[in-house]
Simulated scan of single mutants.
Amino acid sequence: MHLQRRDGDATPTSSSPSSTASIKTDPSATAADFVVPKPFDTALSNNFTAPCAAFFKAMLSNSSFNDCHPFSLMLQTSSSFFDASKSYIRITRTLEATCSVNSQQCLGIMDSLALALREDANCAVDYTNDNPQVLQAYNGLLAYEPLYQASCLRDDDGNYCYANAVTNTTATSDAYPYYLPLGAAMPGGARPTCNTCLQDGMAIFSAFGGNSTQPISQTYDGAAQQIDMYCGPTFVNKTATPLKGTASGISVSLTPSITLFIMLLVYFFQ
Results as ranks from 00 to 15, higher is better:
R191G: 02
S87D: 06
T94N: 04
T13Q: 09
L141D: 07
A31G: 09
S103L: 03
E96Q: 09
L182S: 07
Q4G: 07
G140M: 12
D130R: 13
R191P: 01
Q4A: 07
A10S: 13
C106W: 05
T255F: 06
F55Q: 03
S251E: 08
A53K: 14
T128M: 07
Y267N: 09
S212Y: 10
T77E: 11
T219H: 02
T255Y: 06
T246Q: 13
F208K: 05
F235W: 00
L153A: 11
C231H: 00
S217E: 09
L265P: 02
P17K: 04
F40P: 04
Y230M: 00
T234W: 03
V236Q: 01
P39R: 12
T77Y: 09
A207I: 07
L180R: 10
Q149G: 01
R154K: 15
A163Y: 10
I262D: 11
P17I: 02
G209A: 08
Q218K: 15
A240P: 06
S251L: 06
T255A: 10
K86L: 12
T219C: 01
A43H: 05
G245H: 12
S18I: 01
P51T: 01
T241V: 07
C231D: 00
G8F: 05
D9R: 12
G232D: 00
L141S: 01
V125Q: 15
V166A: 07
K24F: 15
K57N: 15
N164C: 03
P51V: 00
H69A: 13
M74A: 03
K238T: 08
I258M: 09
E96Y: 01
T259V: 15
M263R: 05
H2G: 09
S206W: 10
C197R: 04
F235R: 00
S61K: 10
I91K: 05
D155N: 15
Y178N: 06
A50P: 01
R6A: 15
A240H: 08
S257Y: 01
T196V: 09
A50H: 07
P27T: 10
A247W: 04
T98V: 05
P39F: 13
H69C: 14
K238S: 15
D130V: 08
M263E: 06
S64P: 01
D83R: 15
L180H: 13
G249S: 14
A143I: 08
L117F: 08
A171H: 14
G209C: 04
T172G: 03
A240N: 03
A58R: 08
Y179M: 13
E96P: 00
P70L: 05
L264P: 03
L198K: 00
N62F: 11
V134I: 04
Y220T: 02
F208W: 12
M186H: 02
C152Q: 03
L117Q: 14
A84V: 12
D126Y: 06
T30V: 15
G222D: 14
A150K: 04
